[in-house]
Structure formats: structure tokens, C-alpha cells
Design a binder for these strands. Sequence first.
DNA 1: GTAGGGTTAG
Length: 814
Amino acid sequence: MEKNIDEAAQYVASLKVCAREKDLSTGSILHHKISKSGLLGKNLFLGSALVNMFVKCGELKKAQHVFDEFVDKNVVLWNSLLSGYALHGHNKEALACFEQMQRVSCLPNTVTYICILKACSSMRDLKKGQKIHSQIVNEGFLEKDTLMYSVLMDMYSKCKALDEVQELFNKIPVQSTDSWTALICAYVQCQCYEEALSSFEQMQQGGFSPNIATLTSIFKACGLLGCLEKGIEIHLHLVRIQWLEESIVASNALIDMYAKCGALSKAEEVFVKLPAPNLITWTELIAGCVNYGYGYDALIYSERLQLCGFSPDSVTYACILKACGNTEALERGKRIHARLVKDHALEEDPIIASSLINMYANCGALKNAQGVFGKLTTLDVVTWNVLIKGYVENGHHDLSFSCFKQMKEKGPLPNGTTVVCLLESCGVTGDLDKAEEVYAQVIRQNLLENDLLVGNSVVNVYVQCGDLQRAQEVFLALPAWNIISWNVLIAGYAEHGYSKISLYYYEQMKLAGFSPNTITIACTLKACGNILALDNGENIHAQVAKQVCIQSDDDMVINALVDMYARCGAHKRALQLHYQKPFQDATPWNAMISGCILHGQEEEAFNYFEQMQVQGYTPDEITFACILKACGSRGSVFKGQEIHSQVIQKGVSKLSMVVGTALVVMYSKCGMLMESQYLFDRLPIQDVVSWTALMTGYAAMGKDDTVLKIFDDMLLDGIHPNPVTFTAVLQVCRRRGLVQTAEYYFEIMRTSYQLDPDLEHYICMVDLYSASGHLDKAIALVRKVSDPTLCHTLLDACKKQGAAKIGSWSFQQM
DNA sequence: GTAGGGTTAG
């Protein structure tokens, strides 16, 4: 008997080694020997060790087989098997085991509960977890082992029941590193990163030092929050206590933190010091490069990892393919595709398939993207979304909607991402009907409920299509708002010329308890500038200083402030900001210059243009465009030519649209039609502004036939005229007495181009009618519009013709 | 002498 015990103890020791090293072959030999020795089925110590060895080697069937050999089982043997099922994610089997052992009256102990809770966690089965929790409490196991608290907290956090986690934490009689760690991990699990960091502070204040798991979670929180400073601080502490090398997991978390914060050189520093980076390490680096726009570096890493003997898995492939797409490395992408086909990876993994489609779409190779899509046997919603996004980004809006149609007919059902993509497409095309169709689907599937992005996208699409009424309706009906929802609406009103309404919603937003962010401030200041509301703008400036989440020296805020002050004519206030913190580039100077132009102070504009260059700022395209505008308004030909040669000196070999158009306008205003026409012919694209500038210029020279000819050419070119274009045309008609032609243009302006005539157009028509003897028509228009200026026009015409009665009528109208 | 958790990449 004595000998047997010795022998069994030796076997147990050897099996332990096999389990740790996952050495199945030695383990199997031992299994064989033990069977022959007759010890199997009798010695429970040996049985547990054997079951455990097979479990650790992933041989669950063999573990079950050994387990079955025992007639009398104790709790340790049950636990050995149960832990195996839980470890390998066979949660149903683990649960069955748990119930079975209780049926045969084997009482669970702490270890049993820990294992079964793990199964509940990975099944995210809150109900089952709660049931076991109360069983643990009833049987008094909570006090037996504080580990129980941590495990329960983990279960609840996996089931997203954060309240229960906090409640448990508060009940722990004596806190420890482990309990704090469980809390911090739970916060990270539930994406409450700020809470995780503040708990970490408290933990350290309480005198507990973090372990590997704490640090791993904290790094994750820092990375996802973008808290680089905090991350560096902890890293430095780790370096001091020389702790990091112990764990590849913690090192990977650290590298990922740096990569997520965009500190790629820091990530690389940690990486090169690692004794044994794994595939995850490499993948983190690749992902970091891809996400921060260093696609080529990502591809270099992807080659290096393969040279080091690693094969990419599906996550790595997703990153590499993204890098190919970002760098438009189509040929490399195709080679990877070929390899994936050879390895049958596409059927196995939907992520790889979607990444491949995405890569082709990003390279503009839609045929290839369709090819991959067409060969897939199972299409999930992600695959469809990737294809739809590809269509939208490549301008095939019709195709994206035919996908939408197919999804609605045959499934899978669209999700939030699908509709956001489609709404983006509507925003680009301005197709309100399609936007309505998508919105209807959003309502049908109740997609607004859990995803603010969807609601914000709907509001945004109506704003982009210019239907602010509808945007407001949808906004008011949203189940919840965030700061972005408000910004979309505030920006929308400001951009479409409803600045007062924009400012009204800014006030409403504050009343609703939201704090403005940088974007809000920029939009609101824009609105103030639009309506020259200096007081309002100053109030907002004062609020910026008080707002915690806004850096008052943020360039975006400063530029918006300068723009507002300059538009309102408060140049001194604008310039003060420059003396507080020097402008970062030409942008705020441009705002100063265009502010002057807006107020007819061209000399001032030239001054600032001078001043910025003296101070070492380089004018950009916008600066030149603004200053050329000033030249045009003043008719400063020489100054204009000087700027023109400065533009040429800057080495702008091809005329850019912005500067080119500004030059066309400037020369046209200065009456130099030859120059204007010459530059017009050399523009990369002739848009409505340059066409109109040319027409206005010729009209000013009295070249009426040329104006009408140019107008026809422009329409033939498919360019939509704007109100200024029609002003030029109608002025020519007035001068030439072309009543019918004018009536025709006045008509198509509304019917064909959806442009409401403004005062200028009415003045032309009234003047033309009264000068050509159509006083009845002139009166009809004056009645319809009832504007004092228009009455004046009629009065003047009557004076000239001595039509006293109508003259006095229009005088009364005034 | 046998059984046990929390952590990482898209």
C-alpha cells in the first residue's frame, strides 16, 4: 500500500508537468502506464491529475473518459472536468456537469462556483449567473474566499450589469489589489474608461499596487480615451520598477495604448525591446500605422512579420488589406487575394471577405469588389455594408440603393451602419426622396432607439438637402440628443443663412443642459458673423473662456473668433487675438482681409496683406483670392497685376480654381476683358462664378451680344446659372429693350433653375416694362412685390415719360 | 499530492 501511494504521487507530479507544458504525448504514455498498473478508477488524486492533464491539452473526450472510469467521484474530480469544459468554452457541458454533480449529491465548493461562473460569463447569461450568485450567498461561500467577489464581479461586468458590480465591490469586507483590479477590469469591460482611471487613482491612494491585469486594463482605458500622458506616466513607473518584461500581455496592451494614441515611435520603442513579440504585437503596430495614415509603414511591418515566421490571422489580414486600400496598393492586394483563395480563407472568415471587398473598393476597383462579393456563399449585413460604402464612396449612388432594395427584399436586414451609409449618399446627391425612403426604413426597424449616430445622420441629410423644416422635425422627434445632434442643427441653420435660428438653437441647447464644444462655438460664431451680431459674438467669446471642455487657444476657436470680429468690422478685437497668441497660419489673416472687403475697406485689406507677409506668414490661395477681390472692387488694375505676378512667382504652374477664378473676376471688373477671357480659357474647370464674371465684364463694356452668346454657351456646357448670372442677362435685355427675351429668362429662372428673383431682377423688369410702354405689367410687378425701391424705379420711369397719374400712385405706394 | 479568475489585436 505504502508503495502504491509513492507510485501514485510520482505519477501525479509527472502529470502536473505534462499539464503545464501541454505535453500530450508524455501524458498519454503516463495514462497508458497508469491503466496497466491498476491504479486508474481507484486513486482520486491520480484521476484528477489525469483529467486535468487531458483538459489542459484540449483533449476533453479523453478527460471525460477517464472521469467515467470512476464510480466514486469526489468534488475535486468533478471540478477537474467542469473546469475543462468552462476553459474551452463548452459552456453547455459545464452547466450539465454542474447540475449532474448536484443530482448525485456531490456538494459544490468554491472552485466549482468559480468555474461555473466563468461559463455563465462567457455565455453572457445574466439570469443563470444571478441564480448561482444567490446559491453562493445562501451557502455562505462569499465569506470563504474573497476571490468569489472578483469572479462574480467579472460575471456581472461581462453581462453588462455594472450596478451589480459596484454593489458587490462595496460589500467586500477587506479591499485588496485583486478586488480593485476586478472593479477596474469591469469598468473597462463596460467601456467606462474614465471610471476605470479614477478607480485606479483611488486604488493607489489606498496603498494597493497594481498587478499585470490592472495595468493591462488601465492601458486599454488610456488608449481608448487617448490619454497619452497618463499612459506614459504609468509606463515610466513600470520601467523604474523593471516589471514589464514579465508579461507579453501587458506589453501588448502598452504598445496598443501608444498605437491608439498615435504615438507610433513610442510603440516601436517598446516593441524593439520585447524579447518575443507575438502576432498580436505585430498586428497592433500594423493597425496603429493604418489608423494614423502610415499605410506604407504598415505594409513594411506586414512583410517583416512574415519574415519572422508568423502567418497573419484574420485580424492581421484585415489590417494589411486596409493598408493596401489606403495606399491604393492594388497589385499587392490582388496577391493577398490570390493567397487567401488558395488557403480557402474567404469561405471561413467573413471578416477577411469584407476586408477584401473594402480594399478593392478603396482602390476604386469595384469590379473586383463585386467579384469577391458574388462568390461568397453567406452574406451578412457587414458584407453588404462594405459593398454599399464602396459604391457610395466611388459615386455609384444608384448601385448603393439597388443593394438597399435587395436587402429589404431578401435580407439580411439593414442595420445602423447601412442606413448611415445610404443617408450619406443622399446628402451627396441631394436626393430628398431617397432620404425619405431610408428614414422610413429607420422608423420601421426602430433604428433610432439605440444609435444616436443614425438619428444625427437623418437630421444631417435633411440639412444637406436644404430642407431645414424636415431636419428640425426629425431632430425634435429623436429619442435622445447628444452634442453632435445639436451641432448638426446649429451648423445647418448657420450655413443656410438662417443665422438667427441657429443662435436660437444654441440657446435651447444650453437650456437643455448641454455644454458647447469647439464645433458648436465655431458654428455659432459663424452665425454671429453672418448677421453682424457683434454683441452676441462677444458674449460667446466670454463663455468660451469659462468652458472647461474648450481650450480657448484652440486654433479652430481662434479662427472662428477672428472671422466673427472681422465680419462685424471689429478689426482691432480680431487683431488682439493675434497678440495674445500669434496666428498659426494664413487662415485668420484671410478672415481679417475678407472682413475688410465686406465693409468696403479695401485699403485696410491691402494693409493686412502687407502686414502678414512682413511678419513672415505665407499667403495661401484664399489670401490671393481675397486680395484679388479687393483689387477688383477698387478697380486697382496695377495692384491686381502685381498680385497676379506674385501668384506666378509662387510657382503655381497650373492655375488653381480658387485663384484662377479670382483673377478672371478681377480682370473682368477692371475692364480688362482680354486678360479675363485668356485666363478663363485656361481654368481647369469653368464654373458658374467664372462664366458669370465674364458676362458681367462684357455687359459693363456694352458688348450685349457677347453676353447673350456667352450665356448660351454656358447653358450648353451644362452649367446652372445663379442669380448674378440672370442679373447680367436681364440688364442687357433692359438696355436693348428686349421685352420678350427678358420675360423668357425671367420665367425660366424660376421654372428651370428654381431661383427666386431678387430685387435686382425685379428692378430690371420694371424698368424695362415702363421704358417700353408696358406700364400695366410694370404696375403688376410693383404691386406683387411691394418694395419701396421698386416703386422708386417706377416713379423714375414715369417722370421720364410724364405719366403723372401712375407716378402719383407709385409715390403713394412708397 | 488533485480542481480555480481577472488581461491583449479588427
